[in-house]
Design a protein around this nucleic acid. Structure first.
Lengths: 97, 97
DNA sequence: TTTGTCTTGACGGATACTGGCAAATATATC
DNA sequence: GATATATTTGCCAGTATCCGTCAAGACAAA
């Protein structure tokens, strides 16, 4: 249930002695949402990552990468052909670059 | 807009001189849906892949892999950190195996 | 117990997805 | 060309899913 993204957010937040309530307020959402995001029950909307990075004084690219990895993981977990599919996509991505 | 999965399905279907209408009938859906799936406008439901493979006398695992790759591609396309995220997931997958 | 933080479940609204239909377009056959 | 068949496209209603809020519960510190 836990996510790389959520764990990292919690790590960043607590390191700054910031409360859920405070982070939620700055993101303009209810406290419960942040709680769920940090525990991996919900996904943060992609568009909110930049603001979150600013609030936490964190690296935006790092958070975006973790967020994307979580989305991918959710898709391939329990998929027997996950490895091959991932490789195929990696290859295709590089070609278009 | 086109997908690996859809292109492969069309290839398999036409190779057998099967009409959209016929394939749709066997899958018990409207013709237009199959048309859209083959052209990449829609996704086939994962649960339907085994039946489709049987109808087309195709390799189920191959179709599942293509299908999964399409889902991943949709997620990472236009993502600057796609490559790193993909690698991260690959690594994590292998550990749990 | 009281206070403050965090967690959890349920709810309504918004959004996205699904299959079906019908019209439009394409392709073939004459 | 005309006709018949095959495919594509746009739109609709029903459904599922996601999102944020609220309220209640769990937990810890004093």
């Amino acid at each position: 249930m836990s996510t790389q993204f959520g764990s990292r957010v919690r790590e960043l937040r607590t390191k700054q002695k910031m409360l859920l309530r405070q982070l939620a307020s700055k993101l303009d959402v209810d406290t419960s949402i942040i709680s769920k995001i940090e525990r991996g029950d919900r996904q943060l909307k992609k568009e909110q990552i930049p603001l979150l990075a600013t609030i936490l004084q964190a690296d935006k690219v790092e958070l975006e990468t973790l967020w994307l990895a979580d989305q991918l993981m959710q898709l391939v977990k329990d998929e027997p052909t996950a490895d091959e599919a991932l490789k195929s996509v990696s290859k295709k991505i590089k070609k278009t670059k």
